[in-house]
Amino acid sequence: MADHATSRGLDPQGYIEREGSLARIPRVFRPVVASARDRLLELFGGRLHSAYLYGSIPRGTARAGRSDLDLLVALQEDPADADRAGVRALGEAVDKAFPQIDGVGTLLYGRARLLSAAETYDMGWFVACMCTPLLGEDLAEYLPRYRPDSRLARETNGDLAQLLPGWRRSVAEAENPENSDEAADPAASEAARRRLVRFMSRHLVRTGFTLVMPRWNGWTSDLTEMAEAFGAYYPQRAEQMRAAALRGREPTADAAVLRSYVDDLGPWLAQEYARVHGVKSPRD
């Protein structure tokens, strides 16, 4: 395999290489992964088609006590509400049992949706390139290979404009938590703002990166590298994106940061994305 710094995450034919592997999982996280694997089998049994890891743990860059465990689960059929409740409870149990992780996030889909035409250049790409097989048959065998082109950019992150209204509601709730369950607990309110800053920062950096991805001609999941790639093409916004990359790793509880995302960087990025790549195809 070529060095990432020179290949920019592409194989010799110019396709995005799959990132992560079970071999790269740091030793401290291996009991966490084993527990999640066993619990998934117990929860779903024969209904489970496959399960995957993604994020910093299979990339080998996770930090003990700071990183979360990210899972994607594909069922034989479309998931029901009880299945979603089951994976939430599983995540809470694993998070409680292992202090070396800071939360568990699980994406839950049916096999047919992940292999559908509508998802080929969105969740299909995600499974094939961003996910590390953990259990079952690898869906990547049924998916194409992917180049860092405009179609991939559009279908992965071309929906920011649709997301912004919901983001604004979340920011308003974070700024005025008096009607929320966290109102009586300032520490919980601050933690909620940090989670929101972390999430929005990462999403904006990744969207900024995929905006320039076809010109940069490569793939990376490193937030700093993403921000630098973006800044090379949009120097007037480079500092904002570098700051967002930093907050994606070290989030602040400052509500003003959230407001700047939904009032300035987010709307500008959504408009520029639509101009360059168009908008994401509608989903059911």
Rank of each mutant, 00 (worst) to 15 (best):
V127Y: 12
R88S: 12
T6E: 04
L246V: 14
G266M: 10
L107I: 15
L164F: 06
R195N: 08
G55N: 01
A191N: 05
A192Q: 09
L72P: 03
E225I: 05
A172E: 10
A187N: 13
R84W: 07
G105H: 02
A112D: 10
S189Y: 13
S50C: 13
R39C: 05
L143D: 15
P79N: 15
R283Q: 11
D185I: 00
E137H: 13
M226C: 15
V94G: 04
R18W: 12
E272P: 03
L43H: 09
A187Y: 03
A89S: 05
L269V: 14
R39W: 12
R249V: 08
R275T: 14
P58F: 03
R168L: 13
V279D: 00
W216V: 10
E77N: 11
N157Y: 14
S67G: 05
G105Q: 06
G266D: 09
G278D: 09
R206M: 04
Y142C: 09
G55R: 00
D149I: 04
G110F: 11
F209H: 01
W125S: 14
R194K: 12
D159C: 07
L41N: 10
F98E: 01
M241V: 09
P235D: 13
S7M: 03
D3C: 07
V205Q: 01
P99A: 15
A238W: 11
R8P: 04
R24K: 11
Y273H: 02
I25Q: 04
A172Y: 02
G278H: 14
A34R: 06
A74C: 15
